[in-house]
Computed example of a mutant assay.
Amino acid sequence: MICLIQRVSQAHVSVENQIIGQIEHGILALVGFQPDDTSDKIHKMLHKLLHYRIFADENDKMNLNVQQVFGGLLLVPQFTLAADTQSGLRPSFSTSAPPAMATKLFDELVQKAQLNYSNIATGQFGADMKVNLTNDGPVTFYFEI
């Protein structure tokens, strides 16, 4: 499981010119799945997303997590994160989870996130999404579990 997260001052996802997920300040998480991903990996990644300290405290140190700043978490499925880019000039998606599996895993991630935190928004699996964001910092991290 791969996540590319960005600390944002705002972010939203649109499908066919309609906003389907939106947050003010918080974390935009682009999420990619691989064939060996499991519920256990989802649990570990969600814990990291909700507890990773990337927001400034009163001393301007990255010491607070998204929950402590009452920020949003926008989860956006992005199968291209799991692409094999090691050779050639075109990505191979043989290292990405098959669509049916990835859909199930993304749905599980969203359900668990909503059970653990109230400020969750999402993109739409398989849709042609437009993601708009203002990266705050910029602050961007890559996680792989």
Results as ranks from 00 to 15, higher is better:
D57S: 06
Q124D: 12
A102M: 02
D84V: 06
Y52G: 06
K48R: 14
M129E: 06
E58V: 10
Q78N: 11
T95W: 08
H47F: 10
D60M: 09
M45P: 07
L105R: 02
M62V: 00
A121E: 07
Y117P: 02
E144A: 13
R90I: 11
S96H: 04
L46Q: 07
S87T: 15
Y117T: 01
V110G: 00
P91K: 04
T95Y: 11
I54F: 08
P91V: 05
H51M: 12
Y52D: 10
L115D: 12
F55C: 04
Q67G: 13
T80C: 15
K104P: 05
V110S: 04
D84N: 12
D57P: 01
V69L: 02
P77I: 02
T122A: 13
V69D: 05
T95A: 15
D57C: 03
F141N: 07
M101I: 10
T134M: 04
D107Y: 02
D128I: 12
Q78W: 03
V66S: 05
G72H: 00
L75W: 10
A97M: 09
S94G: 15
G71R: 05
H43P: 07
F93A: 13
K112E: 07
T122H: 13
Y142G: 11
L46E: 03
T85S: 14
F55Y: 05
A97L: 11
F93E: 05
G88E: 03
M101E: 08
F93D: 10
L105K: 05
L109C: 08
T122M: 07
L109Y: 04
K44H: 13
A127C: 03
A97S: 15
M45F: 06
G123K: 01
L105I: 06
G137Y: 01
E58K: 10
Y142C: 14
N132F: 12
P99A: 10
A100D: 11
S94H: 14
E144L: 08
Y52K: 14
L64Q: 06
A83G: 05
A113P: 05
F70H: 15
M62L: 10
F79L: 12
N119Q: 14
L81K: 11
V139G: 07
P77E: 04
E144Q: 14
L133N: 06
G137S: 08
K112C: 07
G123Q: 02
A100I: 11
N63K: 07
S92H: 11
M129P: 08
